[in-house]
Amino acid sequence: MKTYSALGAAIALAAVPFLVGLNEYYLFLVTLILLYTTIVVAWQLIGGYGGQLDLGAGAYHGLGAVVTGFLMVNYGVSGWVGLLVSGAAAAGVAFLIGYPSFRLGLKEVWYALSSLALVLILQKIFLLWTDVAGPLERYIPYAEFDPVFMRAGTKIFYYYITAALLASTFLIVSRIRRSKTGLYLISIRENEEAAEMLGVDVRRYKLQALMIYSFIAAVTGGIYASMVGFYHPTLFDSWISIQTATLAIVGGLGHLLGPPIVSIILLTVQEYLRITLGAVIIGLHQVIFGIILVVIIMFKPDGLGPLIDSLARRFPASVRR
């Protein structure tokens, strides 16, 4: 049963490009949706399990884009190497910021604010650091199809990379959730003091969660840069931070299925509204999106996770877990 579901999942993911008729524009959109969903899934580690409302996703995503892009543009280094290097760089930055923060007991609103501040600080640093980025867009050399360099004219290439990334992120997160680390993280979220008194090394687990999440967020940034073919400090985007956190909250903190499902649905709705309404009144789709978010958060503070879980419970047990 388990193998069947996995196989079904793989086939379904693989089929999406054909469902959109191989149209490059729609492929671009579904790839973006899966990219942002990947960050939401990874965010569960720090936010859903660690209980830290992190708003640094834009910082790590941007770092991934800039580092991967820089290596591709300046040294002709393959994007695949770039993804790993930028992931490591992001995890390094996460450590530098996370270690003192957790050690000095930064939490709740102060943690959220400091992670948001990080996005803006990094954006301005790379704006001033003209050797690496600077105010001018940098363009990654064009290639019709070069899988080794990780650059292609068609979006289907990026779609499959992203789909694979989303699937592996999901597997990593679900595995961590069931591991000892996951249990510790959840105990931290429920009651940090109690967890600490029971001898859980609170800082270490929070830091681990933060570093894994920042690594994955950076990889999404690297894929994005290679797909759009340029990088710029504006890719340190606070909106990605806010979007990630709200989608994860609406999906249900700590739920496994809710966040990705909600993220895919809401981002699809957002794109649909953008295409249909965006031309009528610019920005109208954004307002509707905002209202949906506020209403869900106000009336379902636990998000849609419990709802989705109960729906999933109707499936045979083997499908559920």
């Binding site: 609103v109 806010i242 905002g290 209202i291 978010l293 506020v294 106000m298 503070p301």
Partner: peptide, 11 residues
């Protein structure tokens, strides 16, 4: 509180 007011921020 943060989650809800982030929702207000988005709106």
């Amino acid at each position: 509180q943060i989650a809800a007011t982030v929702g207000v921020l988005v709106l």
